[in-house]
Design a protein around this nucleic acid. Structure first.
Lengths: 121, 121
DNA sequence: CTGGATCCCTCTCGATACTG
DNA sequence: CAGTATCGAGAGGGATCCAG
């Protein structure tokens, strides 16, 4: 990495790390993406039921964030009661393999990491 | 992904996503890892000089977090003035390829994502 | 059913000053 | 040089209530 690249990273506005890690680094986005990948298409209430521990507000906020980044598609059926379906976009699907590789590494190293933390004074 | 796995993710204590993404999802860890990978060995002040925008406190906190996870090694030379060197551990190096794959995706998609965000009402 | 609006608390992070 | 200590602002996130 050259200095040019470092400055690139330091510039929050145009920094790819900021623009991507900030999103997947929040509390729920990765989990929602993984769940959506598995189910292909889900309604709001289905996601909520699947991820029991997320609050309604945070699910709304998370989905909105993912939608604004073009990672998730939101389809509204204009009917009463409302019906809204979520699914991954192509861009979202293109991100998932990278997330899986991270999760795989996480699974393999989690126990050692937890052990390291405990030992760390 | 089966329900069993979903509950696995839902359990914060043993969830690999939580335990890893929480760390790399903070503001500075990934950047520090990338910088350390490039330079191999760096002193505290060198990292600080390279990442100009990080505060002294946050650099300390970030390095401590990475060290506690066994991703970075901290070597102290008992002398005056003090000298401390940081470098990646094997575990840290094993994580880097996954980060690079994410950063690569980020670079390729950042402009589209930014455009999506602007267009999003 | 799918959220929007509000309140409030916690935790992160930055700025500043100080120390062996 | 390499941190530690302290303070305070702001964002993230949960609970609850409300609405089309």
């Amino acid at each position: 990495m050259e200095e040019k690249n470092l400055k690139y990273f330091g510039d929050a506005e145009h920094c790819p790390v900021r623009n991507v890690i900030d999103r997947i680094g929040d509390k729920w986005s990765v989990l929602v993406l993984l769940v959506l990948e598995e189910a292909q298409v889900m309604r709001f209430s289905e996601i909520h039921k699947t991820i029991e521990t997320i609050s309604q507000k945070m699910l709304t906020v998370t989905l909105k964030g993912l939608e604004s980044d073009g990672l998730v598609n939101r389809k509204v059926y204009p009917q009463i009661p409302p019906k809204v379906e979520y699914r991954l976009t192509e861009r979202g699907e293109s991100l998932l393999p990278h997330l899986h590789s991270l999760v795989k590494w996480a699974r393999e190293n989690m126990n050692d990491i937890i052990a390291s933390r405990k030992q760390f004074t």
